[in-house]
Structure formats: structure tokens, C-alpha cells
Design a protein around this nucleic acid. Structure first.
Lengths: 195, 195
DNA sequence: TCGCTAATAGACCGATCGATATAGTAAGCG
DNA sequence: CGCTTACTATATCGATCGGTCTATTAGCGA
């Protein structure tokens, strides 16, 4: 985990530990449901260091964690879309991967952004904006791949928005049901419907 | 509904006020982000009555409020689907109505269940189950209409799951962006793709 | 070695959280 | 009338919330 017991104190590693712990907890229980003490405990990093690394407190921490999670997933989406087989096969593969991840985590790890996005949409502009930017980066990744495969710009953008909507909704429904049927339904309907 | 035994104003009215206030607040800020004191303040009902009407506390209150919101929306979905024009036109009308409602509320009123569903999926079994049941009631309403229009059972169920997924995801993305483009994209893509 | 700074230690703050306990009031009814 | 039940009022509980404070330590360049 985090404790590297070399006499040297951690420094930058603490910052990273806070970020990782925050990302996990936000994903599972959201923003308001996650306490700073829980973050500190899970990170293993010293409590006194929290406000050194994140002077902006909980909000800054959440923002940084969301950007980190968002960037990771953005890269994963991009890599999947660029695999051979075209965007259509890639989207199906993405759905399979998400279903496997969700099921494998005991239905705890859905979208890392969605919960916070909904909670803070009307409560915190900075967090809302962060969530919106992350979503947009994912849409852009999908739209780019669609465009590369021959779609024109506006159509690709619209299709990307549609696909991400279906995925996000299916993750939500699957989590609530503890059953990947919604993700599978989206997979099969997209298979039929997508050109 | 409730026994309307011509008694005086108070009593049952407090219970209703708590429920309404809770429904609004859960929809806008989620479960963990909503305090009992805020609920009491908004309801206008006496603080001392809360645990009389809801001995189970916050959780029971949330559950009852979710069931209420869920049932209201279920009826609205059913009414829309039963309007002349068939399920295809009805789904488009539903999307229009949701977009108008979201925009008209300053992007505060999205899905009344989604936020709590995500927050509590791994934290509270009773609330998770409640959310799942509400979602299922909406899916059933959609599937029934699809079946009435000639689809066979399994296909209608799958299509209903897909449509609700797309709607929920679009509500999420639209709220985060403060822009109904995702809802519109879903509307147009469904228009093209749906039989 | 010294001094500067990054980083940690952890006690502590007032506020608010959900929940409880107990007492009081009003309506319905014999 | 007095009694019971339904409902309200208030005060307070311990826990936890996010955040701040002062003091101290470790590491590195000079």
C-alpha cells in the first residue's frame, strides 16, 4: 500500500495516497457520504499532511481525484476504441469490460464520476464543472473514433453522446439491481441499432 | 391513499409535508447531503413530529419519499405511453417532457431516484432495494407498452431496459453539463434506431 | 554544521449530524 | 367530565463533520 518505511518521510507519496483513497471512496459512496477521516484512514497517510497537500480541503481533493479517475478512464476508452475492429466492436468490448468490472467488484465500482456529478450538480459549481469536463473528455474520445471510421462530425458527436448516455444509465441501473442485465441489454440493442 | 377522516388540519398533514420536502431534497442533493434539520425546515412541520411519523428515522423517511416519487413518475410514464401514437412517439414525448422539466428547474430536478440509488447502492440495502424496485416499475411500464404494440415479451423487456438506461444517462449528463444536448441526442438517435 | 523548507504529528475547534428522552397539548369518546 | 390516543415541543445526547492550530521532524543545499 502506501507505507514505504524508508527513514525518509513520504512527501509526494502521501499526496498520491490521498488521491487514490479519495477516488475509491467517491466512486463507492459519493461526496457527501465520504468523510475526511475515512479518506485519511484508508490512505494510510498522515492526517496532518492533508491540508498541506490540498489547502483547498475536501473540494480540492475531490476535484483532483475526479480528474485523475477521469483521465485514467479516458485513456482506457481511447485504447479500446483504437483496437482493430472499428468503433462498433470497440463499444461492445467496452460494455463487456464495464460489466465485468462492476460484477467483479461486488457492484461497488460503477462510474467513478456519476455519483459526485449528481450530488453536486446543484451544490458546488467547481465539482459540477469538473464532472462535466470529464464526461466531455469521454464523449470526445468516442466521437473521435466514430469520426475516424467515416462518420461526419455532427453525427459522430451525437452518436457519442447517445452511447455514453446509454452506458452511464446502464451502469446506474445495474448497480441498483445488482445485476448486469441493463448493461447487457444496452449491448445487444446497440449491436442491432448501430450502423 | 391516506384516510381522509375529516379530522382537523394537522396530524396526517405533517407526515405528508415531511415526505414532500424529503422528495425534493433527495432529488436535488441526495441522501447524505440532506440533513434532517433541512427537511424539517422546508416541510414547515413540527420537528417533534418527525420520529412520531417515521420511527425508522432518516432511512424510513427516504424510503417512503422515494416510493412516492417513483409511483408518481410511474403513473406519468404510463399515461404518456398510453397516449395515441404508439410507444415510439410516446418515448420521444417523454424525453421532451424530461428535458423541459430539467431545463425549467434550472437543472436541479433530474431523476428523483438516481442520486440516492448511486449513493446507497453499497451502503444501505433497504434504500438500494427501494431504488431497484422503482426502476423496475418504470421498466415494466415501458415494456408493457412495447408489448402492447406487438413486440414479443423478451424483446420488449430488453428494449425497455435500453430506453430507460439511455434516458437515465442523458439526465445525468445533461445535469452535469447544464445543457439538454444529451437528452436531445438520445431523442434523435432513438428516433433513427427504434423500429 | 547551519538554516531553510517540505512534510508530519495530532490536539483541538465550533458546527452539525441523526437520534432519543421526556414532558406537554389537543382531539375524540365514553 | 376524565381518560386515552395522537401529535407536538424542547432539550440534549454522543459522534462525527470539515477545518485550523502550534510544534516538530527530516532532508538538502550552502
Amino acid at each position: 500500500m502506501a507505507e514505504r518505511t524508508s527513514t525518509r518521510s513520504n512527501g509526494r507519496a502521501s499526496r498520491r495516497a490521498f488521491l487514490d483513497a479519495t477516488a475509491v471512496l467517491l466512486r463507492r459512496q459519493g461526496y457527501a457520504g465520504t468523510g475526511l477521516s475515512e479518506i485519511v484512514a484508508r490512505s494510510g497517510a498522515p492526517r496532518g499532511s492533508l491540508y498541506f497537500h490540498f489547502p483547498g480541503g475536501k473540494q480540492e481533493l475531490a476535484r483532483a481525484a475526479m480528474e485523475r479517475s477521469g483521465e485514467q478512464l479516458r485513456r482506457a476508452i481511447g485504447a479500446t476504441m483504437d483496437a482493430p475492429g472499428g468503433p462498433r466492436a470497440a463499444i461492445l468490448a467496452l460494455l463487456d469490460a464495464l460489466a465485468a468490472g462492476l460484477e467483479g467488484s461486488g457492484y461497488r465500482d460503477g462510474c467513478p464520476i456519476a455519483t459526485v456529478a449528481l450530488e453536486t450538480a446543484a451544490e458546488s459549481e467547481p465539482l459540477r464543472e469538473t464532472a462535466a469536463a470529464v464526461f466531455e473528455s469521454w464523449v470526445d474520445e468516442l466521437a473521435r473514433a466514430l469520426q475516424d471510421s467515416g462518420m461526419e462530425r455532427a453525427g459522430a458527436q451525437r452518436r457519442a453522446l447517445f452511447v455514453l448516455s446509454a452506458i452511464e444509465g446502464a451502469l446506474l441501473l445495474s448497480r441498483a439491481r445488482r445485476d448486469v442485465a441493463p448493461l447487457r441489454a444496452v449491448r445487444e440493442e446497440l449491436l442491432l441499432g448501430l450502423g
